[in-house]
Each structure stands twice: as C-alpha cells, then as structure tokens.
C-alpha cells in the first residue's frame, strides 16, 4: 500500500514538473525539448508485472498528452518504453527479476554501468519514437536527426540530476 501511495505521489510530481516547468522554460533552440516524465516508468519496482507496466505507461502518456494537446503522441512513446523495459532489464541483469522484490532500479541495486545503459537506451528509444511520429507529420530529415540527438542529451542531463536527488533520499532512510 505504501509503495502504491509513494508511486502515485511520484507520478503527480513528475507530470507537474514536466508540464509546468519543462514546458514553460524559454527554448534554447527548436531542437531542445527536455522530457523527463517517462522516468517514472524506469523507476517502478522490479516486481511490477508486464500488464501493469503497459497500462501504467499508457495512462501516463495520456495524462501528459492532455496538457500538451497532442492526443496519442506521448502515449505511443511511453507505451513503447513500458513494453521494452522488461526486455532491457532481462538483458542487463543476470539474476531472476522477481528476486529483487520491492527494489527499484537505481545505481545501488543494478550497479552503475548496467543502470546507465538501461537509462540511456530507453531514453533514446523514447525520443527516437516521439520525434519520428512528429516527423511523419512535418519536418525534414535534419530536423529529425538533430532533435533526437540533442533532446536525448538534454533529457539525460536532467535525469542525472533527478537521480542524484532520489538517491540521497533513499540513503537517509
């Protein structure tokens, strides 16, 4: 129960940060649009079942879409992240996933190298798919390429900052 409440609060905080802070900062360049909302999916506990993960990611995306006025765009991208997450964890971790129980993916539980691979891979997948869907509607190839690379880099930086905050919290507990 405690875990569910904690994750609901985390969901609300992350969406509010995404929508009211990251969406409102003045743009540095048209290629740079930071996204961190899908980090919520990456930080769900290991024991989360695939079906739960899939539906959570869909509703997270729809929630974000309501504020961005792009129905389906973020939902499609975060759904892909939710679908691929178990496969990526299975590739990176030798142990049986269920053994980890309530643990969440972090530097301490996964080790620095697998954890950063996990974050970078799924962040890239998310941005690639998101910008790809945008590119189908308009834009040139240069726009697609530049936006995927720069947006991924900026988002990774923000995720790193968010991660440092989270770890400090869990250590003090």
């Amino acid at each position: 129960m405690n875990l569910i409440v904690k994750n609901i609060i985390r969901l609300i905080v992350i969406v509010l940060i995404q929508v009211f802070i990251l969406n409102n900062i003045p743009p540095l360049h048209q290629f740079i649009v930071p996204y961190i909302y899908f980090v919520f999916l990456l930080w769900l506990p290991f024991k989360t079942t695939r079906t739960t993960l899939l539906f959570t990611s869909f509703f997270l995306g729809v929630f974000v879409d309501m504020f961005y006025k792009t129905p389906g765009l973020h939902a499609a991208a975060s759904l892909l992240v939710g679908f691929l997450r178990p496969f990526v964890i299975g590739l990176l971790l030798p142990k049986e996933v269920t053994e980890w129980g309530n643990e969440e993916p972090s530097r301490n539980t996964m080790g620095p190298l697998p954890y950063s691979t996990y974050i970078i891979l799924l962040t890239f997948v998310h941005h690639f798919y998101l910008v790809f869907l945008e590119w189908l509607q308009f834009g040139s190839f240069l726009y697609f390429l530049g936006k995927v690379i720069l947006t991924t880099l900026v988002s990774l930086l923000l995720i790193l900052v968010a991660d440092l905050f989270m770890n400090r919290k869990s250590r003090s507990r």
């Binding site: 899939l54 539906f55 869909f58 765009l73 939902a75």
Partner: peptide, 16 residues
Amino acid sequence: VFISFLFLQGVSLSML
C-alpha cells in the same frame, strides 16, 4: 502483453 501493447499503440496512433 504483446497483443495489448499493439492494441494500445493502435489506439494512441489513431488518436494522433
């Protein structure tokens, strides 16, 4: 899981 993934993906793309 895969079928529901495809279904939800279809829903979101058709909305988009």
